[in-house]
Amino acid sequence: MFGYIRVDRAELLGKEYDAYKGIYCALCRQLGRDYSIFARFILSYDCTFYAMLGLDLTKEPPCYEQKCCRFNPFKKCLYAKSESASLSLAAALSVISAYYKLRDDLIDSPWYKRLACRLIQPFFASWRKKAAKKYPEMDAFVAKMLESQLQAERDESCVPDMAAQPTADMLKAACEMLVDNIELRDDLQPERTKRIVGTMGYFIGRWIYLIDAADDCEKDKKHGSFNPYLLPLQTDEPLADYIEHSLNNALSEALLSYGLLDKGRFDPLINNVLCVSCISIQNNILERYRQEDSEKSNEESI
């Protein structure tokens, strides 16, 4: 996971942000409880969003309790407490995806990074083993994602849609798994909710893959690594516009899917992520491309 799916704090009410922070801290604690105190370091915004989505769909609302932070005993934090499996699933997704990301880094990173990865790999492997025992289905679809990703990158006819599919499929399966493992709110029908949440997950996964590719394009070009935006693209648009339109499309589809779901307790937070935060993140990244384009055109005119 990459940390792009987060809230825009400036646009939230204080109580909304507290609710979000409570889930973030609760996931941190869950990672410590289920795996190890060091597993807390792999806490990500993406998995916090995943936990929040689960808690939004759960019948019983989470309650919040105030406790001391493990890393700073002088700081009191709010922790979301829930009987549902949302936090446990999010913690498992964190460690499993971190393990496979590490394996991916071992394939295409410079030697010094590979060395660091080798050193921490045994820890990640033991957490992943524990999580896979609890949720074997999750381990299987994340492993499949990595395999399909490598396959897509090797395919000569690869296009950005094809490259984005493994991550999209993984998040789709993860979101569907949420619906299967929690007791849903009374107003939600399981099959319908599974389809909606799965489709939403698909397009959020697609957006995550594409925004990460846009963010890393320059670096990948330098290192000769695979990046979907370095492929020959079938478009006449400038690259920044092409990327922006693809990202907008993925977000729109996620938002339209979410629109079909009856609103839950974290609706303002989910809306904040999809309508404000993601757009602001992609604008910041695309600004770099546009600045480079204008610098190039200035140099040409001189």
Partner: peptide, 20 residues
């Protein structure tokens, strides 16, 4: 419809001007 989604201006959703 596709153009509206690519511009992130979905009818019925308040997404225009977000982030600015």
């Amino acid at each position: 419809n596709m153009n509206a989604r690519r511009a992130y201006s979905n009818p019925g959703y308040n997404t225009t001007g977000a982030g600015g």
